[in-house]
Structures are given as C-alpha cells and as structure tokens.
Amino acid sequence: MECTRIYSIHDQAITFEFAEIISEEINLHIISLKNAIEDHPFNGFIECVPAYSSLTVYFHNNMDKNEVIKIVNSYNSKLNTNNSTSNNKIITIPVCYEMGEDLSIVTSQLNLSEEEVIRLHSEQSYRVFMIGFTPGFPYMGTLPKVLEMERKKTPSLNIQSGSVAIAGKQTGIYPTNSPGGWHVIGRTPVNMFDKKRTPACFLQAGDIVQFKPITKRAFEQYL
C-alpha cells in the first residue's frame, strides 16, 4: 500500500497518510507498519501514533526529516499486507446496557426496541482503530448501519467513566469522567485506564472487541 500524502505536523513528527476514508483494511496496514517500526526502531525514533488512516512518526531532532521519510517508506515497501491479517484474539468487554443514560433517546430516534439496540451492538465484534480524545479512549468500528446516529448537538458535560457510547459509524468507551458528544447506551465495569497497570490502557489500536451484555447485578459484582 502506498502513501497518498506525507506531511510534517512538527519539525520532529511526520504523518504518513494512506487514505481519507475509514477502512479496516487501511487501518490494518497502518498497525502493521507501526509494529514493524516498533519491532526494529531506527536510530532517533521516539514513538508512533496510529490513527484511522494515517501513521504519525515522532523522532529526535538529530534525525533529518527526509531520512526518516526514506526509512519509513522502506519499512512500508517491505510490508506484506497479506501477512497482517488479524491474528488478534478477541477481547470481551462486559456492558450493562440498562445503565446507558441515553438508551431511551437512541431507541426512539432509531425507532428500535431496547432489545434490538443491545442485540445489534453486541452481536458483532469491533476493531479498535485508534486511541485518543482522552487517555485510553478507544475509537471502534464499524457500527451496523441501523445504529448510526449524529453526535449530540450539545455535548454532555459529565459522562461517567466506563460509559459505552455510539456516534456515526463508531462506538467508544469513556475511560474517565469527561465531557463528550456521543450517545451513552451502556456502561462497562472494566477500567480502561489505570496508570499503575502495565500497560496502563486496557485496549490498543488493532485490538478486536466483543461486547457482552450483563445485568446490573453482574456489573456490581464485577466492581
């Protein structure tokens, strides 16, 4: 897969863009490229940030920008995309849907029953495209078409940590109490971010997630 655009976002950070769409195939390629660089870091490498359809590479100021572009391009050309089919295990995340404060708004806007929303959201697995927005927040997709909803016009000021939410083609989990514009349809007792744990984030880009509906009682027992 070839880059469609390469640009700087800082003197020591270059973004390699592969498309301007959200696609599992492109994201898979980006994660493979990230892994290739991290497995054999070049001299001066600091870190990579994968996004939906781009990979940003941060490096020390002793490295020349054009040299970094050359190195990353050579990693990219050596990648065998056929090789990078998902060998990830599926991570199950329990969700108590009755604790979703926007569930009733979602069901009435989408004209679906609660059971249908829960079934549609939990019967398929999702890919973690990237982590961002706040520490540990996974951007996952792709939602079934019937669950697609525009984000809230006015963001909620305080969304509880563990809230499982949907917006557009995406679903996500709020790791900490924070403002947010996505519709909350459930809550997980799993701690998405814990600085004392290694790794601190429960999920990383490239993981495959399956939600499992649980009762409020099971939620409380989990804690």
Binding site: H10, A13, Y52, S54, T56
Partner: peptide, 10 residues
C-alpha cells in the same frame, strides 16, 4: 475530516 495525529504547535 478523518481524525489524525496532532501535537504542540498545530
């Protein structure tokens, strides 16, 4: 736009 990496100075 499709979300992508940003950093200090952007």
């Amino acid at each position: 736009m499709i979300s992508t990496a940003v950093t200090k100075g952007i």
